[in-house]
């Protein structure tokens, strides 16, 4: 088997194994209801994580995601409360804003040669601050269109539902996979992660690729914010704190190398599932504190970083023998 599939295989294996263990204890976990909820509950995180996958594949990081989600939610709530704008128009507007916001961070990262960590950290504070400027309260969204959207779902046999937002997440993953593996832009993202200097020598358009990557992450953070507002039916500036870290976790558990250049968008989906599964298990158990989610995920994250180190080490040995 090719080495690049190793982390992904490990992720899938861990998911299947832990799912089997959970199912052995609580057979209900296999029901389509649980699966449907797993998709719905993690939809906003999954969508944000697709953008994060591209950013990390290119060797960068985007810390602004959680704040952008909160900003989007507050923006939508405020606009829908105070104006007569149709939600769809508001969606388009907010997506344009967050995409531009991401693109702007990309421009700063590339042209001012600033580390992505610092630029997106500033973006994180900025977006959160803008959310507070719009409103410090939790504003409920009562627009009838929201109820309509929530009414859309696909009923699975066994009573489970694939909601609109759950389905949207799967769609975003499908498109993300296509972009990553079947477009020149996707290859350029990997090229950037393999080494910016070399990629430049080989003629990769570094500037436009970097800007597009962060614009994509901004777009998907905005979409994630829309999904989050549909999910919670409210906008609150303190919402979604630390979601960017959950997204990074999903990406790394999904087998993407934190240093960039190697990984799969599909792996991130499995990473999301693993996080969701742990959460579900703890809900089922009922006696465990929800902090166990964090502890388990922390341990898992650590194990994956070790695994990646090991693989890199092995591949180096391999090359020396070849």
């Amino acid at each position: 088997m090719k080495q690049k599939y190793l982390p992904l295989t490990a992720t899938i294996l861990i998911f299947v194994l832990s799912y089997a263990l959970c199912a052995a204890q609580y057979p209900n976990i296999l029901s389509t209801r649980v699966i449907g909820n797993l998709l719905t509950d993690n939809a906003f995180l999954g969508i944000a994580a697709v953008g994060m996958t591209f950013v990390i594949l290119s060797g960068g990081i985007d810390l602004s995601v959680g704040s952008v989600i909160a900003f989007t939610g507050v923006f939508l709530a405020v606009v829908l409360e105070h104006t007569s704008m149709h939600p769809l128009a508001a969606f388009a507007l907010v997506l344009a804003i967050t995409t531009l916001f991401g693109a702007l961070m990309g421009v700063i990262i590339h042209y001012l040669e600033m580390p992505a960590f610092i630029v997106t950290l500033a973006g994180m504070f900025l977006a959160r601050g803008m959310a507070f400027v719009l409103s410090i309260d939790s504003i409920p969204i009562k627009h009838p269109f929201y109820a309509t959207l929530k009414g859309f779902y696909y009923k699975l046999p066994g009573g489970g539902r694939i909601t609109l937002i759950g389905g949207l997440m799967l769609l975003v993953f499908a498109v993300g996979i296509l972009i990553a593996h079947r477009t020149r832009f996707g290859t350029n993202v990997y090229a950037l992660g393999g080494g910016t200097a070399t990629a430049k020598l080989m003629g990769v358009p570094i500037a436009s690729t970097t800007v597009k990557i962060y614009a994509l992450s901004g777009l998907l953070a905005g979409l994630s914010g829309i999904v989050f507002s549909l999910y919670t039916s409210a906008g609150y500036s303190l919402a979604a704190v630390g979601v960017e870290l959950d997204a990074i976790t999903a990406v790394v558990i999904g087998g993407t190398l934190l240093t960039g250049g190697s990984g799969f968008v599909a792996g991130t989906l499995v990473g999301i599932f693993i996080q969701g599964l742990i959460q579900t298990y703890i809900t089922f158990d009922g006696s465990l504190s929800s902090w166990w989610t964090k502890i388990l995920i922390g341990a898992l994250l650590f194990a994956f970083i070790l695994l990646q180190k090991g693989i890199i080490h092995l591949s180096r040995d391999d090359r020396q023998r070849a």
Partner: peptide, 13 residues
Amino acid sequence: LPNLSVAENLFLG
């Protein structure tokens, strides 16, 4: 680029 496939390296861009 070591992380890309041989073919991708040959035809990048």
